[in-house]
């Protein structure tokens, strides 16, 4: 059965697009049929992160408005053949999307794909609401900062009230993905602790992705980190998160614990030298 998954956060710059691309790619690498849908109309980025910016002809707005057929707008990834992208329009604004139109496109995508990953725009306005509207699963991307946590809380409240599932009384699965987790700052106590964030947001943890240059490098070359550098810690975090989404039980590593061990080792070396 197909699943519609919204990747959302409220706050901008926390890693929604990167996480959408990486989770989507990881799911596709595991053999699932995946489409990434960019809902950030007017500020599209997902095509860049996926390295498909020079292949965009038609976009989500064209399909929603009936100017193009869905197969015309879908871009197939060159690296993973079960991964597709439905780009956003850069020249339109979010008012170009209608609930009825988005619902129609999502229903059509459900027939073809196992996973429909909706990359939400920042904010709580129409664009973000349409991105979450038809979701079965929500991945709430949060940085370990108070502002991000509060915005995520706000978004969780909206997921519980403004989605179709919430309105019909069905359960909407919500997962927390902690990104840009800085192990060095965490050990110094400069960042919110994982347990405090979990206590405040009260939703299950899907994974913790450490702040890492690998992620930025991958984004800049137009490739999700799970494809560009599968051995990196960030890629492994996303791959594990994708496996958890598929129902596998995989233990969650807090980067701080690992880094703590590393620094202890380095500390000893330094002392010995």
């Amino acid at each position: 059965m197909s699943k519609v998954m919204v990747v959302t956060s409220g706050k901008g710059g926390v890693g929604k697009t990167t996480s959408s691309a990486s989770l989507g790619a990881a799911l596709a690498q595991a053999g699932q049929n995946v489409v990434l849908v960019d809902f950030d109309v007017g500020l599209r980025n997902l095509d860049l992160v996926m390295g498909a910016e020079r292949r965009v002809v038609f976009d989500l707005v064209n399909v929603v408005q009936g100017d193009a057929k869905l197969p015309q707008a879908l871009i197939r990834d060159k690296r993973v053949e079960t991964l597709y992208l439905l780009p956003a329009s850069q020249t339109r604004d979010k008012d170009a999307l209608t609930e009825e139109g988005v619902g129609r496109v999502i229903a059509e995508l459900r027939e073809r794909f196992d996973w429909i990953v909706c990359d939400s725009p920042a904010g709580i306005e129409k664009g973000a609401q349409l991105a979450m509207r038809f979701a079965d699963i929500a991945v709430v991307v949060t940085n370990p900062e108070v502002s991000s946590v509060r915005d995520s809380d706000r978004i969780i409240g909206m997921l519980d009230s403004k989605t179709l599932r919430a309105e019909t009384g069905e359960r909407l699965e919500k997962h927390l993905l902690l990104t840009r987790y800085d192990a060095a700052r965490a050990t110094k106590g400069e960042m919110m602790k994982v347990e405090d964030i979990l206590e405040i947001l009260a939703i299950p943890l899907l994974g913790i992705v450490a702040e890492s240059p690998d992620v930025l490098t991958a984004s800049n070359v137009g490739s999700p980190v799970t494809l560009h550098n599968p051995a990196s810690a960030a890629a492994r975090s996303y791959t594990d998160a994708a496996r958890r989404l598929m129902g596998e039980s995989v233990a969650i590593n807090t980067p701080a614990e690992k880094r703590g061990l590393m620094s202890r080792l380095f500390g000893r070396k330094a002392a010995a030298a």
Partner: peptide, 25 residues
């Protein structure tokens, strides 16, 4: 939980909440 941005208004009596009331709620 009462999430950030939510407002619970109940004029007729007591309110009991099982869960947290978030910052901004």
């Amino acid at each position: 939980p009462v999430r950030s941005g939510q407002s619970i208004v109940f004029e007729d009596g007591d309110v009991t909440i099982i869960g947290a009331v978030a910052s901004g709620a």
